[in-house]
Simulated assay, not measured.
Amino acid sequence: MTEALRTDDLRFERLYKVPVARVFEIVTQPEHLADWWGPEGIARCEGHLDFTAKGPWDSTMINQDGARFKVSGQVTKLDPPNIVAFTWGWHDENDARGDESHVTIELTEEDGGTRFVMTHRGLSSKEAAEQHNRGWTSSLRKLDAAVNA
């Protein structure tokens, strides 16, 4: 039974016409994450961005003006090719990690393709949810292009 979303929780859903295993590769493997991770306008990412095993991850996204945005967490659940879940926390300019939230990506086979559902729970405020909604919406446009390439 799926837990109800709170007001500040986010849910994104897509239906892709490719197999679950292929979508799972794209959302977990470092070489594919680079194609879609971070909102549009991110020039590059640095760090240890790998969702193929439980444990720590981090990503510093660098925009076209050179501004850096660091986020990190732990991969907490991995059930290939259906689920990857991880914690999420932004770092400030002194590299102190802020409030922690939780992201879960669930993939299921549907109509010969893949239903992609991502939830981001436990965001600290309505403003944080709005900012993450914009960021994830932009990133998922890049994911759509990567999956459909």
Score class of each variant (00 low, 15 high):
residue 99 D to I: 05
residue 12 F to A: 10
residue 119 T to Y: 04
residue 113 G to I: 01
residue 72 S to E: 14
residue 46 E to Q: 03
residue 122 G to H: 11
residue 9 D to V: 11
residue 68 R to C: 05
residue 92 D to E: 00
residue 18 V to Y: 05
residue 72 S to F: 11
residue 78 L to S: 04
residue 149 A to T: 10
residue 62 I to Y: 12
residue 46 E to W: 00
residue 36 W to G: 05
residue 53 A to V: 10
residue 74 Q to I: 14
residue 57 W to T: 06
residue 88 W to V: 11
residue 12 F to S: 11
residue 25 E to K: 14
residue 104 T to I: 01
residue 87 T to Q: 04
residue 128 A to V: 13
residue 77 K to W: 01
residue 88 W to R: 12
residue 124 S to N: 08
residue 86 F to S: 14
residue 68 R to D: 04
residue 87 T to D: 05
residue 90 W to V: 06
residue 145 A to I: 09
residue 32 H to S: 11
residue 20 V to C: 07
residue 29 Q to F: 01
residue 27 V to Q: 01
residue 126 K to I: 09
residue 136 W to R: 09
residue 37 W to M: 04
residue 119 T to E: 08
residue 135 G to D: 00
residue 52 T to I: 12
residue 21 A to T: 10
residue 69 F to R: 03
residue 16 Y to I: 10
residue 112 G to R: 06
residue 25 E to Q: 14
residue 148 N to R: 14
residue 9 D to C: 11
residue 105 I to W: 02
residue 19 P to T: 04
residue 32 H to W: 10
residue 148 N to T: 15
residue 74 Q to A: 13
residue 51 F to R: 10
residue 125 S to R: 05
residue 7 T to Q: 12
residue 107 L to P: 00
residue 127 E to P: 03
residue 123 L to Q: 03
residue 38 G to V: 03
residue 9 D to G: 12
residue 96 A to N: 13
residue 115 R to W: 04
residue 51 F to K: 08
residue 7 T to L: 11
residue 116 F to S: 12
residue 89 G to R: 15
residue 69 F to N: 07
residue 111 D to C: 10
residue 139 S to Y: 02
residue 9 D to K: 09
residue 92 D to M: 00
residue 143 L to C: 02
residue 59 S to E: 05
residue 130 E to G: 07
residue 129 A to L: 07
residue 136 W to D: 07
residue 125 S to M: 01
residue 131 Q to Y: 13
residue 84 V to T: 08
residue 75 V to S: 01
residue 26 I to E: 01
residue 123 L to T: 04
residue 115 R to Y: 01
residue 148 N to S: 15
